[in-house]
Design a protein around this nucleic acid. Structure first.
Lengths: 156, 156
DNA sequence: CTCTTATTGATAATGATTGTCATTAAATCA
DNA sequence: TGATTTAATGACAATCATTATCAATAAGAG
């Protein structure tokens, strides 16, 4: 039942889905990619599941998880863990290489930032201690100006 | 049953437990603090629970969680999330102020590092974007020289 | 010693994520 | 184009870390 509305795919035609070798192109993955294209901030898998559903596409939660993981492993989307350890996903911005995020704790508004000096510093520190196979996490959280303004006005 | 071995507390007498106002000093919390004193690397709550038990102290997993949280909220111990989002705890090292961690993915060996330049950079970036109430995560993961050596020798 | 209440422990509940497995449908091939 | 292969899906169970519940216990104050 729920026959997915006679073939009228709500998936935007422009949405590009990158596939690894041996992978297949499905409408479910396209639906997730499209939903991701519409939002600017980091969202949990559950939230993305809701967004996909609200667009009229029918994709199971399991598949949303799998699609997000597949995309993330290719580097097609960004992942970060919030302070609760929950994974948040977002389509990659303009910066293709290694970058970090400045995320608003209130609304999720995100800015991608680069810091070559920081990259160098982390590698230097690690190498100096004899560490190899190095990676690092660096995310900045705060309250964006828009939310700060709202908070001052609202007085809840 | 299991009467906790006639009062002979296995908790090292030297172990200091910091208390917030209104808090009480219990043998359970002391046991967790003592276990923490014996290890140098970041461990999960479950692991610390095992360590406490192996020392002969009987503390429920729930209480271990609560103790760790209490200590962490006072800044008595360090917490970080590994890539799975699991919380890892460790007694504070010598550096009392704000610092970061260089952690071995294999054995948990940890080095505390400071980077005033990085602190400044994160704040500058965030302020420049209009963010306030800023904090950040920065942890470096890698394989320590000891584990790298072992891996080369072992060939499992 | 008594009283107040923070703390504990046993256990259930939560919530995100992963595993299972039969079914479906891309991509390939004849 | 129809048959074949197997990646992908979906419904649902299972994990696993962490938190909530709540009655019983025990610090610390009086």
């Amino acid at each position: 039942m729920a026959k997915q509305a006679e073939g009228k795919a709500s998936v935007s035609p422009g949405t590009q889905v990158t596939l690894a070798i041996g992978q297949r192109s499905t409408k479910q993955r396209a639906a997730v990619a499209t939903a991701l294209r519409d939002i600017d901030d980091f969202r949990s898998a559950q939230e993305i599941f809701e967004i996909v559903k609200s667009r009229g596409d029918n994709v199971s939660l399991t598949t949303v998880y799998r699609s997000l993981q597949a995309m993330a492993s290719i580097g097609d989307i960004d992942v970060l863990l919030n302070s609760e350890g929950e994974a948040l996903y977002r389509r990659c911005g303009q910066r293709s290489g290694h970058h970090h995020h400045l995320v608003c704790r209130k609304c999720g508004f995100t800015v991608e930032v680069e810091g070559p000096a920081v990259e160098r510093w982390t590698h230097d520190v690690a190498r100096k201690q004899g560490f190899t196979d190095i990676n690092h996490t660096l995310d900045i959280f705060g309250v964006c100006s828009s939310c700060a303004r709202k908070a001052k006005t609202a007085r809840v």
